[in-house]
Design a protein around this nucleic acid. Structure first.
Lengths: 230, 230
DNA sequence: CAAGACAACATTGTCGACAATATATTCTTG
DNA sequence: CAAGAATATATTGTCGACAATGTTGTCTTG
């Protein structure tokens, strides 16, 4: 929810920047189907802009590895394979584990307090069962997002927030991932925040890595299930 | 040396792609000084191209975080601070540690044999003391590059090879990093290859992380020294 | 003389048109 | 009728020109 890339306020920045955000969002939520062609003429017409800014946006989408471009042929939205998804989980485990450790060492107390408030909110939502899976997932990303920010490593935050989180979100939209793991995940989140609050970096890293590993296994099970049903 | 991005054969691909490679190389080796402005008109004139492809290349340089761009103002080459450099080392430690573990599990025997040949070559160069620091450093990157490739995680390889290695190289050129650590580094490389060859992922990860940590400490010492002399 | 406003300039952002390349269709030929 | 070549079409790549924004230098004025 508070991920900057999500709230593309159409007022600021250049057309290329705005179209990049819009396209990225459209791709991530599946509005533009995976594997479909990114045609410059039709998109330029649809959004009422010229091809110039559009091309720059597409080049950036390529850098974010959301589209696959071939010279003189064009760009297509990537189709996330299960292998690629597991690759992302592996990277997140390494990177976010490190982020949790750094956050335990360097995150300001105010940030930890914010984190606790966020968890309180999640706890209410889960308890009332009034939450929708969508918001639950958003909340999960929000949690991870804040910890990464708290690590203080700007480049780490860039890698995760500009690329990997969008890909993770894309997968969730693509496979209609509904989280029946909300309660467990919340508990894991709470333990992580406790460790960070105790400034126990080693434990925070271990908990975060396990959290992501569990999440990956749940995904693997789901993928195997889908494989079986198809 | 065998890093794909380095040999920009001017024959294939579009102008935008070629100019991206050329600019990246020019920035990395310091041909375009850190902090200097990336002026579209002057670069278009210098390379004899139009501004269109150039702009796309600049957008991609921005995605690689080699330039810093402000809307309606322009782009400037980033200036690597020592903090940013240490951030990169931290990320490399996490990511390449993982890569070494995966390589131990999945790298084909042929790849390991290639790795050994590479180390033989390095050993000769070091023994003859006929090596120049430049090639030594290139060889180091080549070693890391191959292990990352051997991990089989394509996205991991992209993150490291498309962004972080270029930044690391940029730093080395920027600070005129001469390696008096070649002998030790070679020994560490050999241990890592031994672990991979033994399919001991845990050890390979540990050795790789330590290798990068030692390298980071050497860099920190050098930075402190430079700080003192200035 | 200093500080702020104004104007001239340069640079970036955007657009439409043309050239080069790839894909799809049609035609020929065994 | 099938397979391949040649053409036709559409899309991408590139370019030069115009509009919008930032910057810089100058001029006025307290």
């Amino acid at each position: 929810m508070s991920i900057p890339a999500e709230d593309f306020t159409d007022a600021n920045g250049t057309i290329a920047d705005r179209i990049f955000d819009r396209l990225r969002h459209a791709i991530v939520v599946g509005e533009i189907a995976p594997g479909s062609k990114i045609s410059e003429p039709v998109l330029a017409a649809r959004y009422g802009i010229s091809r110039g800014p559009l091309r720059e946006a597409i080049r950036r989408l390529e850098s974010s590895s959301l589209v696959d471009r071939k010279p003189n042929v064009g760009a297509r939205v990537i189709t996330l394979t299960s292998e690629q998804l597991l690759e992302i989980y592996a990277i997140r485990e390494a990177l976010e584990g490190m982020a949790a450790r750094l956050a335990a060492e360097k995150m300001p107390d105010a940030g930890i307090a914010d984190l606790r408030r966020l968890l309180d909110q999640h706890r209410n939502e889960v308890a009332q069962e009034a939450w929708q899976a969508y918001f639950q997932e958003e909340g999960d990303l929000d949690f991870h997002f804040r910890i990464v920010q708290g690590s203080g490593n700007r480049r780490l935050a860039n890698i995760l927030c500009n690329d990997l989180y969008h890909l993770a979100r894309m997968y969730r939209c693509q496979f209609g991932m509904r989280s029946d793991r909300a309660r467990d995940a919340l508990k894991e989140h709470e333990l992580i925040v406790d460790a960070i609050s105790d400034r126990d970096g080693e434990l925070a890293e271990w908990l975060m890595r396990r959290h992501i590993r569990i999440s990956r296994r749940a995904t693997e099970r789901r993928l195997a299930e889908m494989q079986r049903n198809s």
